[in-house]
Design a protein around this nucleic acid. Sequence first.
DNA 1: ACACTATGTCAATAATTTTTGACATTTACT
DNA 2: AGTAAATGTCAAAAATTATTGACATAGTGT
Lengths: 78, 78
Amino acid sequence: MAQCSISNNIRRLRFDHDEMTQKVLAEMVGVTRQTIVAIEKGKYSPTLELAFKISHVFKMPLEEVFSYIKNEEKGDTK
Amino acid sequence: MAQCSISNNIRRLRFDHDEMTQKVLAEMVGVTRQTIVAIEKGKYSPTLELAFKISHVFKMPLEEVFSYIKNEEKGDTK
DNA sequence: ACACTATGTCAATAATTTTTGACATTTACT
DNA sequence: AGTAAATGTCAAAAATTATTGACATAGTGT
């Protein structure tokens, strides 16, 4: 679960949507502002539920908000 | 994060894909068999990363493997 | 009967995400 | 100057997901 990265364009989508603030988005999806910051900055990726909720806010398919970039693992860790 | 549910058709997709076993799917996405069991049975929903990986295995868009069902909270009747 | 595979479950632990509360910076407005 | 809003960061704790190892059941085949 560690060797793959997920990127998103939440920041751009926020501004496309009338410059919605992090605080407002956080309230709309029911998490704290820090969670939105962390996801936007790529500190970690959200749960599936949160990803669905965020996509919902922007009325876009999940895969247009979040993209999965596969990192090839070189060996199985066990 | 509490008032929404996520369902999936992993079990059906496994059988559509040559009766792929839970063990094989687990190995393909790099988690244990128990994790696949728990997700299939709806004990909890996967991380976004794992959801992407599973969709990848079945070569389907994430939203055709997992569906998000919004539970109305009291007061919000939309 | 015995072995084997696939599925399901349980409890304890590890790993990751989210919360809480605090504080700093920048920008804009009076 | 001072105030407020928006963003960013940090650390500790809570909540959720994933792992490990064990065991149970049903089905298949020998």
